[in-house]
Simulated assay, not measured.
Amino acid sequence: MIEDWDTFLIPYKQAVDELKIKLRGMRKQFQQENTHTPIEFVTGRVKPVDSIIEKMQRRQINEKLLEADMQDIAGLRIMCQFVEDIYQVVDLIHQRADLEVVEERDYITNVKPSGYRSYHIVIAYPVQTVHGEKKILAEIQVRTLSMNFWATIEHSLNYKYQGAFPEEINERLKRAAEAAFMLDQEMSAIREEIQEAQQLFSYGKGQQVVDDNIEGNHVTDGDQSDTEPHDQE
């Protein structure tokens, strides 16, 4: 096994830190242009060592192939207000020259049997180290706030039941996932009105208060409350 995990994970931590800054910078640019930002907030984390080892054992990943076979050691999550925002964010990521999209999975159009919805993008991101450039695989999950609420609850229950949900819980989760998506659809139906209201609000001092709260509760300190991204490989 890898003996010095701290050293092994240094470039992954660097990748997460740099990507958070860049993705949040995209949000700031939209705000400065007084246009709707498709990014509500961004969080990120490096997978804990015990989770890496557990996944290696569960998926029989050879240690020598760990960097190539485990795509979510570095994980980021982008939260959006609307489903339409998700695909705008995906397009923006594709346009970036500082990273390469190597794989993507659309679990919104192709919803999982459990009801899980999200858009997963695996990227190769070059990290500059003292030993030269090192490309790191990172997974970016893009989802709405309601999708994230459902996924967080499902993830918590998964720890209790280890994936073997009782039938009643399983059915309730599926119904909850559909209800969450219906909420997204309803919000999309009045998206223009919502964005117009938010645009008007942004001219006042209230928006600065909201931004400050977001920065404090989610963006700046969001790492502390990040949950493990959903395994869907």
Rank of each mutant, 00 (worst) to 15 (best):
Y119Q: 01
R96P: 14
D98L: 15
Q32T: 04
V46T: 11
G115L: 10
F30G: 00
L99T: 04
I73F: 10
E133D: 09
V90D: 10
S156R: 13
H155G: 14
K55P: 03
S188A: 11
E228C: 05
Q88Y: 02
V111D: 01
M79Q: 02
L157Y: 12
Q224I: 09
P48M: 07
W150G: 03
E178Y: 11
K22W: 06
S225P: 03
Q232H: 03
T144N: 08
K112P: 05
E40V: 09
L23Y: 01
D17C: 10
E193S: 09
I21M: 02
L99H: 08
D98C: 15
H230G: 06
Y12M: 09
T35W: 06
T43K: 03
D72W: 06
T109Y: 08
E215V: 00
S146E: 01
G222H: 01
D4C: 09
W150V: 07
E3H: 13
T109G: 04
E63H: 04
D226C: 00
Y12E: 01
R24N: 11
D69P: 03
I136M: 15
Q208I: 14
S146K: 08
F181M: 11
G204L: 06
D221I: 06
R24D: 05
Q60I: 07
I10E: 07
T220Q: 03
Q208K: 15
D106E: 06
I190W: 15
P166S: 13
T220L: 09
I108K: 00
D211L: 00
V111M: 01
G132F: 13
A179N: 04
Y87M: 01
V210I: 06
D98P: 08
Q199M: 15
R77V: 00
E171D: 11
G216Q: 10
S188E: 14
S146Y: 09
P113L: 03
E196Q: 15
N62R: 08
N158P: 06
L200T: 05
I190T: 11
P11D: 14
D221E: 00
E40I: 08
V83W: 01
H36N: 05
I194H: 07
E63F: 14
R172F: 10
K112R: 12
V101S: 07
L19A: 04
T37V: 06
Q224G: 00
E84K: 02
E178W: 12
E3Y: 14
E84R: 00
E167Q: 13
Q71Y: 15
Q95R: 15
R175L: 14
S118N: 07
G163V: 11
V16W: 08
H120A: 10
F41E: 02
V142G: 03
A179Q: 05
R24Y: 05
I52E: 04
S202Y: 08
R105M: 08
Q71L: 15
V210R: 06
T227L: 15
G222D: 02
N217P: 01
I10M: 13
M26Y: 02
Q57Y: 13
T35C: 13
R117L: 06
H120Y: 12
I93F: 10
A180Q: 10
G115R: 11
I123D: 05
V122C: 07
E33A: 15
Y107I: 01
K135P: 00
L23N: 04
K205Q: 04
F181V: 08
G132Y: 12
K20G: 02
Q57A: 09
M70F: 14
E171F: 12
A68T: 10
I21H: 03
R191T: 05
I52A: 11
S118T: 05
A180V: 07
R175M: 14
T129F: 08
